[in-house]
Structures are given as structure tokens and as C-alpha cells.
Nucleic acid binder design. Structure first.
Length: 177
DNA sequence: TGTACTATAGACC
DNA sequence: GGTCTATAGTACA
């Protein structure tokens, strides 16, 4: 990860999310009320000059649209480009990609996700990777529950997770297998 | 390297 | 139901 960051706020029905874009796309997302890490002089409040010229405004619009749909329990029509390398190990990235394939309203478990990645027994590590997810909601780590029916954890607080799951459970998406 | 964490899961009492 | 215990991956010194 090099260059600069653009921090901007995304107003939603659930409050103002904070988004941080890097030169290749969305890098991090924080829930309303969270205390985002700051990147000092590398960070600006308007799109830095080394960003692709026409993209930042579109990225923001895409992120806002995807977030709005997610908060209504719907899958996003298009995700904004994601800038993966912010701390992601290969295992974490594989977990995050697997999370993107979990349909709304069809939560899975840490163990099932680990097995799907060919690492049965790595459930705990999957939990760790979920916790390291830099883009919650858009990468739906809230759709992973503990095996016994427990909620598991959530980086922004379990109340947010409960809320997201409740909205998705109340929304029917027949195209999901 | 070694070690101490986890958003786990399963076995045992 | 609690309470171990095994386990995989990560972070940090």
C-alpha cells in the first residue's frame, strides 16, 4: 500500500459511515460512532491527485449505493473496487472472498466457512480473519455465526450484527440456492 | 523463532 | 449446561 488516502463520510439511514479510499479503491469502512484509525499526512479529505482521474466520485457513489442496499437486506448490484492489500494475508483475503459469496439471509458458520476453504478445523482462524475484515457490511462478515447458534463476534459490536442479520432474515431472496 | 492471543468447535462430565 | 482441550492463523517481541 502506497500513496495517499481519501477519507469521506457516507450518510445512510443507519447513520454516517466513514469510508477510506486508497489509490485502487475502497480500503476501509467504519460504522457510525466508531473511532477510525488515522493515517496522518497521507490522508486527505478530498480525492488526492494520484487517484485515477474520474474514479473517486464514482467509487463514493458505488459505495454509498452498495451500503444502502446492504442495510436494506439486499445484495449490492455492484460493489465498488476494493483495495485489498491493507494488512490482508493470503488466508484473510481468501476468507474475505468466500464471505462475498454468502447470499443475504443465508448465514453460515465459522466451521462451515473453514471447511469450504479446504481448511476444516480452521474455524478459529476464520473468526480472526472476519475480525480483520476492513470493509464490514460490504464484505458480509456478519453472515458468519458460531456453530451452536451463537452470534459470534463483530468488529463494530454484536448489536450491529444482530441488526444486519434481522434485516436480511426479513428479506426474501429466492434466487439464492 | 517463541509465545500469547482469538469473532471456534467438539468432547466430556 | 459448563468446562476443558485441540486447533489454525496472526501479531509482536
Amino acid at each position: 500500500m502506497t500513496g495517499t488516502f481519501w477519507r469521506t463520510e457516507l450518510p445512510t439511514a443507519w447513520g454516517r459511515f466513514t469510508a477510506l479510499f486508497a489509490s485502487r479503491g475502497l480500503a476501509r469502512l467504519w460504522f457510525p460512532g466508531a473511532a477510525p484509525a488515522r493515517f496522518g499526512t497521507a490522508e486527505s479529505s478530498s480525492p488526492p491527485a494520484d487517484f485515477p482521474r474520474a474514479d473517486p466520485a464514482r467509487w463514493k457513489a458505488q459505495t454509498e449505493a452498495a451500503l444502502t442496499r446492504a442495510l436494506r437486506g439486499a445484495p449490492p448490484e455492484t460493489l465498488p473496487p476494493l483495495d485489498w492489500p491493507l494488512g490482508g494475508t493470503p488466508f484473510q483475503v481468501s476468507v474475505w472472498r468466500a464471505l462475498l459469496r454468502i447470499p443475504p439471509g443465508r448465514p453460515t458458520t465459522y466451521g462451515a466457512l473453514a471447511a469450504r476453504l479446504g481448511r476444516p478445523g480452521a474455524a478459529r482462524a476464520v473468526g480472526g480473519a472476519c475480525g480483520a475484515n476492513p470493509v464490514p457490511v460490504l464484505i458480509p462478515c456478519h453472515r458468519v455465526l458460531a456453530a451452536g447458534g451463537g452470534l459470534g463476534g463483530f468488529s463494530a459490536g454484536r448489536e450491529w450484527k444482530r441488526r444486519l442479520l434481522a434485516v436480511e432474515a426479513a428479506t426474501d431472496w429466492p434466487d439464492c440456492p
